[in-house]
Structures are given as structure tokens and as C-alpha cells.
């Protein structure tokens, strides 16, 4: 990804990663409640880092699709609909928690 000219180094992703690393570093010194929250915060930052360098999903009216599925209008094209939704879901999991994906859906 080309760095937006607005910013000097480091990149936005790098800045986020730096904060995530710091949370990692201090978490052993925290009480159990705060340690848990710090790890959640770290998880959120690393996810956001993946999000900002990712390609957006293709535009799709998901509300209309949801309503059409509910109304049975995709019953006849079930497999195609299923595959399209699975593809978007895999892309979302790859951002939220890539190691949740089965081997066949992992990149690299």
C-alpha cells in the first residue's frame, strides 16, 4: 500500500502496531481484570491494523439480501448464494481473527 502523502513516517498501521506492542509489554504487570482488558485492546488494535491495509468488500445491499433469503427468494439458487456469503464471511474473519479460519480458507 502506498503511504498517503499527508503523513510523515511511520505509517498509520505502524503507529497502531506500536501501541499494541506496548500493551503486550505492560500486560504482565497488571491485575487480572486490567490484563484481560489490555489484551482485548491489543486484539482490537491488531484487527484495526489489518482493516486499514485491507481491500474493502465489494459493495452489496446486505439488508436486501437478508430480506430476500428470509422470503425464500434464494431457495432456488441456494448454492450460489451460500458461496457468495461464505466468501464475504471468510474475508471478515480474515480481518477479525485469521487463525479462526480452517486451513482451506487461510491465505499464504
Amino acid at each position: 500500500m502506498t503511504e498517503p502523502s499527508t503523513h510523515y513516517r511511520p505509517s498509520t498501521a505502524d503507529l497502531i502496531h506500536t501501541v499494541a506492542d506496548f500493551l503486550d509489554e505492560i500486560s504482565p504487570t497488571l491485575n487480572s481484570g486490567d490484563r484481560y482488558t489490555a489484551l482485548v485492546c491489543r486484539h482490537i488494535l491488531v484487527m484495526v491494523e489489518r482493516e486499514i491495509v485491507s481491500t474493502p468488500l465489494a459493495p452489496l445491499d446486505e439488508a436486501a439480501l437478508a430480506a430476500a433469503i428470509r422470503a425464500g427468494r434464494h431457495d432456488a439458487t441456494w448454492n450460489a448464494t451460500f458461496d457468495a456469503i461464505l466468501q464475504r464471511t471468510v474475508a471478515r474473519v480474515a480481518l477479525a481473527k485469521p487463525d479462526h479460519l480452517a486451513a482451506k480458507h487461510r491465505n499464504e
Binding site: 446486505e62 437478508a66 433469503i69 428470509r70 434464494h74 461464505l86 464475504r88
Partner: peptide, 11 residues
């Protein structure tokens, strides 16, 4: 918030 995957499951 629409969730087509959940609708597929419910259907």
C-alpha cells in the same frame, strides 16, 4: 444490522 449469513441459517 443485516446479517445474510444468519438469515441463511434461519432459512
Amino acid at each position: 444490522e443485516p446479517h445474510p449469513a444468519l438469515e441463511l441459517g434461519l432459512r
